[in-house]
């Protein structure tokens, strides 16, 4: 009798332990997604109101120039950030994998930016990229007076400074993931290829990089969510400026919902962001995970 109760308990224990977190996530994540969706259909300004008013916030949103600037910036930032991080990270990992001396120390150097928060990264790069404080001044002091690098204060180029700072921060992390992947590849395959007479470039192109597919998958997922939610980096680096030329959807949403008392409008922009994330990530996750099961 006692034993059967203990058995039952043991079988139920994982569920019991998980229940509070599941409940919390249901309420605080999915519940509030639904709540935001509802608010986006209302005319909420200072405080939320709950009368359904239709899609007019979305209509206004898509007529707003600043919103399109923010979306365009996210596209530029997201694609460049993900692409450069992966390319640089892979390159660094391959170079580090050549059994060089002091590998541990070098790895730590590249990984170190990960230890900083985006606020710190943003502030440090703000000083480095500022024409009268940082790089440009340094070059002028070295005698290259014709040197200009004013992306930070140039409305056309400011979003690219966010890419620079973001890449600096995240490349080391991607490198570490690729390095782990490289170490996991069976040496026997590579030796077999060498016996068959394949050169090093061919080995990388045809064997090593394809077998890193799961690492590419995780890096893209991790980097794309960093890109979409990046808020603090922009706030610290450019505060969305000059003008609103380096605004991202996340900073846009915050400005409208909280600084301008347009809760409904902000909620609408949050829902569009949410939809976009779902539209990109869900099919990708689905295809990748399903592929794995069959393999």
């Amino acid at each position: 009798m006692m034993k059967s109760i203990a058995d039952k308990l043991e079988r139920q224990l994982p569920r019991l332990v998980l229940a509070p977190t599941v409940l919390a996530i249901m309420v605080f994540v999915y519940g509030f997604i639904l709540w935001t969706a509802w608010v986006s259909f209302t005319n909420s300004t200072l405080l939320p109101k709950y009368e359904f008013q239709g899609f007019f916030q979305y209509v206004k949103l898509f007529g707003n120039d600043r919103w399109w600037v923010a979306c365009q910036n996210l596209a530029i930032f997201g694609s460049l950030f993900i692409f450069i991080c992966i390319a640089l990270g892979l390159l660094l990992a391959i170079l580090l994998d050549q059994r060089i001396r002091c590998e541990g120390a070098i790895r730590a150097v590249y990984l170190y930016p990960m230890a900083l928060s985006f606020i710190v990264t943003g502030t440090a790069w703000k000083w480095m990229l500022n024409p009268s404080l940082g790089l440009e001044r340094l070059m002028h002091q070295f005698g290259f007076t014709g040197f200009t690098f004013d992306w930070l204060v140039n409305s056309e180029m400011s979003i690219y400074t966010v890419v620079i700072a973001g890449v600096w921060q995240s490349t080391g992390f991607v490198m570490a993931m690729f390095l782990a992947g490289l170490r996991g590849i069976d040496d026997a395959i590579i030796q077999a290829a060498q016996v068959d007479g394949a050169g090093l470039p061919r080995i990388y192109r045809c064997i090593i990089i394809p077998s890193l597919r799961p690492v590419f998958f995780s890096s893209i997922i991790i980097l794309s969510h960093i890109a979409i939610k990046s808020f603090d980096l922009v706030v610290a680096l450019t505060s969305g400026g000059p003008g609103y030329s380096s605004d991202l959807p996340a900073t846009f949403m915050y400005a409208f919902a909280f600084n301008r008392n347009r809760l409904g409008f902000g909620a609408a922009s949050a829902m569009v962001m949410f939809g976009a994330v779902m539209g990109i990530i869900v099919p990708y996750l689905y295809s990748e995970l399903r592929g794995k099961k069959h393999a």
């Binding site: 120039d65 600043r66 003008g243 400005a255 600084n259 301008r260 008392n261």
Partner: peptide, 19 residues
């Protein structure tokens, strides 16, 4: 003016000045 209107004016003014 209300923050929403103030924000709209800000956006145009800052965008005009910086473009």
């Amino acid at each position: 003016v209300f923050p929403a209107i103030r924000g709209a004016i800000f956006d145009v003014v800052t965008n005009f000045y910086n473009s």
